[in-house]
Design a protein around this nucleic acid. Structure first.
Lengths: 145, 145
DNA sequence: TATTGTTATACTCTATAACTATA
DNA sequence: TATAGTTATAGAGTATAACAATA
């Protein structure tokens, strides 16, 4: 069953609305930044993941919360552009490890640098305010961080 | 040119990371809530818009920030399910107004009620904290609200 | 038998360009 | 001629089901 919630007061609805705006703004900027590198959002997310560590295809699907069959195509397209490569896993010959190439890592870094969202607006807040914001967001998100 | 930003400090990066988590969480819940009503995310967003007011196709595209040609298909599918209907605009015969049906409005209400995100976690904050969060988010988002 | 990655299929969303009917 | 909505098309993401190789 869906948990029952008390009727939301005006203040809560206002905060929910602000969060929805943040979400919309964040997504626009992410897609725009990806587009500047001729990447789709999904490709950019996978590349950002692989820039940290090589991962089995299955693990990528878990991170993106989509079916493993979809990852095949996304990695195919990244591989065709030389940003990612597939390597065998020495421990399990069923597994393929997707890994970012040097060029892929460079692209990931430039992508992250072009993602100004939240960084630019946060510059308008004092350190004390940013700390408050951090603590409130942490409590909102709960223990599972 | 992309505006130059000072190198981000640890605190700022942490807040950016928390916001990214909020964004991811919000999207998961939105898609899940839409799915429970057999709607895609795009269909749910359009339905939510039309539940407030009838809109010309063009205006829907502006709100969703996509090409007008895409709206045709989305409204087609909502119309096929009886959630939305197309009406002529008496003032301009080129324009078609998309409007939610009674059933569409009911679905929109249930959709919004099943969107617990941000409402549930916010319940853990005091009114004073929610006010602080609201003010900080407002300042982050700037004047263009 | 179970698991990993892939293929095949179908649907939706997306942008682009061409078309129609109005203005 | 300009605009609103549509159609046609192609590419990408998504889920489902079936498959080969490996465990």
């Amino acid at each position: 069953m869906t948990p029952q919630l008390p009727p939301a007061d005006h203040l809560t609805l206002e905060v929910v609305d602000l969060i929805a705006t943040v979400v919309a703004r964040y997504h626009e900027e992410y897609e725009e930044a990806a587009g500047k590198h001729s990447l789709t959002g999904a490709q950019a997310r996978v590349l950002a993941l692989l820039a940290r560590d090589p991962l089995p295809m299955r693990r990528i699907a878990l991170q993106l919360k989509c079916e493993p069959s979809n990852i095949t195509g996304i990695v195919d397209r990244l591989e065709a552009r030389g940003l990612v490569e597939r390597r065998p896993d020495p421990d399990d010959r069923r597994v393929k490890l997707a890994a970012a190439t040097d060029e892929g890592r460079q692209t990931a870094v430039r992508l992250r640098e072009s993602l100004h969202f939240a960084r630019e607006p946060l510059a308008g807040l004092s350190e004390r305010e940013r700390t408050t914001l951090r603590d409130l967001l942490r409590r909102m998100l709960g223990e599972d961080l």
